[in-house]
Simulated scan of single mutants.
Amino acid sequence: MLQGYQSWAFQNRPVITGVATVVGPEEGAGPLGDDFDIVHGDMLLQQESWEKAERQLMDEAAKLAVENAGLTKEKVQFYVGGDLMNQIISSTFAARTLAIPYIGIFGACSTSMEGLALAAMLTDAGYANDVMAGTCSHNCTSEKQFRYPTEYGSQKPPTAQYTVTGAGAAVVSRNGKGPVVTGATIGRVIDMGIKDPFNMGAAMAPAAVDTMQAHFKDFDREPGYYDLIVTGDLAKVGYDIANELLIKHKIPIHQTTYNDCGLMIYDREKQPVIAGGSGCGCSAVVTYGHILKKLIKGDYRKILVIATGALLSPLSFQQGESIPCIAHAVAIESGVN
C-alpha cells in the first residue's frame, strides 16, 4: 500500500528466500571476500570479452539464487533486472538464458534496490508468488563505456571510484523463511549540476539524502529505528558529503550505524580502488552477500539500504549535460518477531 508520498509499505511482508553473489578477484581480496558465494580469479571468467564475462556473472548469480531459494527457474514468475551496459544487455542476455518472464529496468547503480522494491511489490500485491531481482557490473565494461578503456591507462583523480565486478540476485516470495522486505521509498531525480564522470560520489550524495529524508517522513521514523543504514556506492567522497548534508538537514543519523557499500567492499589502504567502490554490483553483492548474512545471524534486526545511481550516458556526457542522480531505499527486517 502507498505510505506517505513516495513510499510503499508491504503488509504481507514478502520474504527473501534465496540470494547469491558472484564477484571478481579484487572483490574477493577485499574485507568481505568470505561472504560471497563465488569468487572468480580473473576478470574474463574464461570468456572472449569483458561484456561476455559480465553476462556470465549474472547468469551464475541468478541460477544460484534460484537454487538457494529451493526453487527451479520454472517456478519463478518474473525476473526484474538491469545493469550499466547500453540497453541493459547483460541482464537481457541472462534473461534469455533463464527463460523467465522478464522486466528490464535501468536505475544505474540504484538498480539493485529498485529491482528488490519492485519484486517485493509484485509479491506483496499477489501478482506473483516468486520473483527474482538481480543486477551486475564489471569494472572493465564500465570503464570502457563511461570513461576510458582500461587499456588506455589514464590517470584517475582522487574522487574517482572503482566499478565493482560482481552480480547479486535475490528471490522474493510470498511465503517462506528468511529476511522480510517491509517497505520501500522510490527516489526523485536530483541534479546538482555536476558534470564530472570521475566524481560520482559528489553527484549522488544529494539524491541519497533526499530519499532518506522522504523515507523517514513517509514512515514517521527516525534513523534510530534501524540498526544499520547503508548507502549504495557513494564511496569516500560521497559518504563525507552525505554526512554533511544529513547534519545540515538536522537528520539525527548519529542514532544508528551509517555506512556505505562502496567503502565496505574494498580496503582502500591496500587495494587500487581510489575513493572506493561503485557500480550496480556494489550494493547488490554487499547487501546480499554480507549484510543479509549478519541480519540472519542476528547482528542486525532492521536495516535500510539506499542504493544510489548516476543516470548519465556516454551520449549525455558528450553533449555536456550534467549528471541526474537517483536513490531508492528498501527496508529489510530479520523476520524474527
Rank of each mutant, 00 (worst) to 15 (best):
E222V: 12
E222S: 14
C261F: 04
E269N: 12
I241E: 09
D240C: 10
I265S: 06
D267G: 10
I241A: 06
Y266V: 10
K250E: 10
S278R: 02
V273P: 12
P252N: 06
T231I: 03
K236V: 14
P252W: 02
L245K: 03
I229E: 06
E269V: 09
H249K: 15
A242F: 08
H249G: 01
G279L: 00
D240Q: 15
G276Y: 01
T257C: 05
D260Y: 07
Y239V: 07
G232D: 08
L228T: 15
I253G: 00
P272N: 05
I265D: 06
Y226A: 06
D260P: 12
Y266I: 09
I274Y: 03
L228Y: 15
Y239W: 12
L246P: 01
N243C: 13
I265V: 14
V237G: 05
K270C: 03
Y239C: 10
D227A: 10
G238W: 07
L234R: 13
Y258G: 05
E269Q: 13
K270T: 15
Y258R: 07
L228D: 14
D227P: 13
H254A: 09
R268I: 12
E269G: 11
P272Y: 02
A235Q: 08
C280W: 01
P252D: 05
G262N: 04
K270I: 03
L263W: 04
E244T: 15
G224N: 06
A242L: 06
K248E: 14
Y225K: 14
G279P: 06
E222P: 07
I253F: 07
D260H: 10
T257M: 07
L228S: 14
G277S: 01
G279K: 04
D267Y: 10
P223M: 00
P223G: 05
I253S: 04
E244R: 15
Y258W: 13
Q255P: 13
I241K: 14
A242Y: 09
D233P: 13
G262S: 04
G276A: 00
A242G: 12
I253W: 09
Q271V: 07
L245W: 00
D233M: 03
V273G: 04
N259W: 08
L246H: 01
G232W: 04
G224T: 10
P223D: 04
I265A: 03
